[in-house]
């Protein structure tokens, strides 16, 4: 058994909040630059230039990339040989999120109750998804998720007979109806299989992949490429003002499922696709 102190977990979560909200991944920046080269709409080019300029300013001035620093979605991959000491694991994560959002002067975007809507004041609770994995480490992954793109996301249970064509029509329809709202150029996370909740979770988790990282199964890698090309033919463009660059990437994740069901979820991420990862 390897002992890990909750204090260390909390400090790590705090740093992930600060860094991920201020710095865009190099893979995202490279893809946005490629899009700028390919974009034919002058307004689209202007939008992409502003996005790159904003990333430079945010890193330089230690400001958040977007005022919507989101709900903190945390994935904990906990090694089964880890013994957490010094307190409650989940409380440590929540404390790290609260300190990170306070210390970074980030907006507090969480309400305590969906109908009463009183702000909790410290951006908690974070939503924590835990998996027990082999080993003696904890991997902490943070996905600050903005409201504009989350609002355009959807899950549906298709009939198995609808097959790949049904999946493509659902994904494309979802992106087309989303239009400008999720802040394109977007990343489209698609979960196929599992159950209602699992397809949504794997769609979200797919957003953590690096740009260009194709699915290991050639069948789904081809589906990702085809969906990306189809989305970029919709003409929505940067910020929905029209253009070639609607999506930076499409990621597909799959799971086994029931003989009666073909669950599909689309989780949309904005161009400020923030994520952070640390291993303790």
């Amino acid at each position: 058994m390897r002992e890990i102190q909750t204090r260390r977990i909390s400090d790590t979560v705090r740093e992930l909040c600060l860094d991920s909200n201020r710095m865009l991944g190099d893979d995202i920046l490279i893809r946005i630059r490629e899009c700028l080269d390919q974009e034919t709409s002058p307004t689209g080019q202007e939008v992409l230039s502003q996005i790159l300029e904003n990333a430079r300013i945010a890193a330089e001035e230690q400001m958040p990339l977007c005022q919507d620093t989101g709900v903190a979605v945390v994935f904990l991959d906990v090694g089964q040989d880890v013994h957490v000491t010094g307190g409650d694991l989940y409380e440590a994560v929540q404390a790290g999120v609260a300190r990170g959002y306070q210390d970074g002067y980030f907006r507090k975007s969480m309400v305590r109750d969906p109908l009463r809507r009183e702000n909790t004041g410290d951006n908690t609770p974070a939503f924590i998804h835990t998996e027990i994995v082999p080993g003696d480490r904890i991997k902490i992954t943070l996905l600050p998720k903005g409201g504009g793109s989350e609002n355009m996301s959807e899950a549906r249970i298709l009939s198995p007979s609808e097959g790949p064509e049904g999946i493509k029509a659902f994904v494309l329809g979802r992106v087309r109806r989303s239009g400008a709202n999720p802040c394109p150029p977007i990343i489209v996370g698609v979960g196929i299989g599992g159950t209602l909740e699992l397809c949504a979770l794997i769609a979200k988790r797919s957003l953590l992949r690096r740009i260009g990282q194709r699915h290991p199964d050639p069948c789904y890698a081809a589906l990702e490429t085809e969906l990306l090309e189809s989305v970029n033919r919709l003409g929505i463009g940067p910020q929905g003002f029209g253009g070639r660059c609607t999506a930076l990437e499409v990621f597909v994740e799959v799971r086994p499922c029931h003989i009666a069901s073909l669950p599909v979820a689309v989780n949309i991420q904005c161009h400020a696709a923030r994520r952070g990862e640390a291993v303790i």
Partner: peptide
């Protein structure tokens, strides 16, 4: 007017 979303560090200036 539409402002570009997700460029809050630039707009804050």
């Amino acid at each position: 007017f539409a402002a570009v979303g997700g460029i809050a560090a630039l707009l804050a200036r």
